[in-house]
Simulated scan of single mutants.
Amino acid sequence: MAWNEPGKDDKDPWKNKGGKNQGPPDLDDLLKDLGNKVGGIFGGKSSGGGSGKSFSSVGIGLALIVAVLVYAFSGFYTIKEAEQGIVLRFGQYSGTVEPGLRWKWTFIDRIIPVDIQTTRDLPAAGFMLTRDENVVRVEMQIQYRVVDPRNYVFSVTNADDSLSQSLDSALRYVVGHAKMDDILTSGREQVRQDVWAELNDIIEPYNLGLIVVDVNFKDARPPEEVKDAFDDAIAAQEDEVRFLREAEAYAKGIEPRARGRVKRMEQEAIAYREQTVLDAQGEVAKFEKLLPEYQAAPEVTRQRLYLATMEKVYSNTSKVMVDVDGGNNMMYLPLDKIMQQQNQTNRIIPNASQSVNTSGNTVNSAPSSSGRSDRFNNGRN
């Protein structure tokens, strides 16, 4: 017989809960029991009586303690060494905090860390029109730092973007008032200084809380279509500068040498003057010594001076003067010509001999270049 046959309720597993063949519990009863237990924990009536009320009080206390601990620990935060923290209380600026471990009111305070020590880079580049109506591409880079965190965050919407736009404006203004040759060659430093000054003037009214540390002029070049021509022009200008430097170096090297020669000539002139003066003084002293001797014996002194003079004159000649006794003729022997002709004859005819007749009044010498013997008619004075 089937268990669900009419009149056999004791066989029904859903209704026979206390018998041996107990089936699954009723879902409504299960949910009801669970609701009673939860209500007892939070202070509701429970089938357990007084023990349920004490259990609910302990649970509420523990929950409050845990909530307080979580809230307290959630307020701790750290500001790095290179940063400063901006405190916002209910969205309004409340102050700044220094680096270290800090605590804030969670859900009340908000902390915005700002790096104030790191040096940041900002590039700028583009094609620009110069004063002489040429197009040039300029690349520049600036370095800056944050000095006022409050102004950096609240003065403008984005301080970095505002600085970038200001740099582009300053760069175009300066390039537009400069010539292309200056930008490409000798005026790069002046352009860099002008951009720096113009950028500071632009950002000053906005109080960005930034300071520009340095401005670097990275590159400046003409468009590719005319780059070769400008390269030649730049090379010519560099050659001009090099030649000027070489000329200056040559001038600096030649001038000291010229001054040295002038000084040497001056010293030689002074020495010559001193020598001439001393020689004159020596001659005067010699004359002063000789004058008393001459006054004492004029003829002897005159003869001695004559012989000394003649000795001095004839000591530098190769000719020998011969005074023939008993006549008015005086001859000389050209010893240099005689020795030269003898040497030539010895080279041509080794055994040739020559004779010189000195017994008469006339001396025959070797043929000279004139082909005759020279005679001097000299009267003895």
Rank of each mutant, 00 (worst) to 15 (best):
12 D>T: 01
14 W>Q: 14
16 N>Q: 03
18 G>F: 15
23 G>M: 07
29 D>E: 13
33 D>I: 10
37 K>S: 14
37 K>R: 14
37 K>M: 13
40 G>K: 09
44 G>L: 04
44 G>F: 01
46 S>I: 03
46 S>R: 04
54 S>F: 09
55 F>Q: 15
57 S>G: 08
60 I>Q: 04
61 G>Y: 15
70 V>A: 11
71 Y>N: 05
71 Y>W: 15
71 Y>F: 07
72 A>G: 07
75 G>C: 02
76 F>A: 08
81 E>W: 03
82 A>C: 03
86 I>H: 01
87 V>Q: 03
88 L>D: 01
88 L>I: 04
89 R>N: 01
91 G>A: 01
91 G>Y: 05
92 Q>L: 00
94 S>V: 05
96 T>M: 11
99 P>L: 12
103 W>F: 08
109 D>H: 05
119 T>C: 06
120 R>H: 10
124 A>P: 05
131 R>F: 00
133 E>C: 03
141 Q>T: 15
150 R>C: 02
153 V>R: 05
158 N>A: 10
158 N>C: 10
159 A>I: 02
163 L>W: 12
165 Q>G: 10
170 A>Y: 03
171 L>M: 15
172 R>K: 09
174 V>I: 02
175 V>E: 00
175 V>Q: 00
176 G>K: 14
177 H>G: 09
180 M>F: 08
183 I>K: 00
185 T>R: 06
189 E>I: 13
191 V>D: 00
193 Q>A: 10
195 V>W: 06
196 W>D: 15
199 L>K: 05
200 N>T: 01
205 P>S: 01
210 L>Q: 06
213 V>E: 14
218 K>N: 05
221 R>Y: 12
221 R>Q: 13
222 P>D: 01
226 V>N: 00
236 A>S: 10
236 A>H: 06
241 V>R: 14
243 F>G: 05
243 F>D: 11
249 A>F: 07
251 A>I: 14
254 I>Q: 07
267 Q>G: 09
267 Q>N: 12
268 E>C: 01
269 A>L: 11
275 Q>M: 11
279 D>Y: 12
281 Q>L: 12
281 Q>E: 11
298 P>N: 06
299 E>K: 11
300 V>C: 04
305 L>V: 07
305 L>K: 02
307 L>C: 06
309 T>L: 11
309 T>A: 14
324 V>Q: 06
326 G>K: 07
335 L>R: 07
338 I>E: 14
339 M>R: 12
349 I>Q: 05
349 I>L: 11
353 S>L: 08
355 S>N: 13
359 S>V: 09
362 T>G: 11
363 V>W: 11
364 N>W: 09
367 P>N: 00
367 P>D: 04
368 S>V: 03
370 S>F: 13
377 N>E: 13
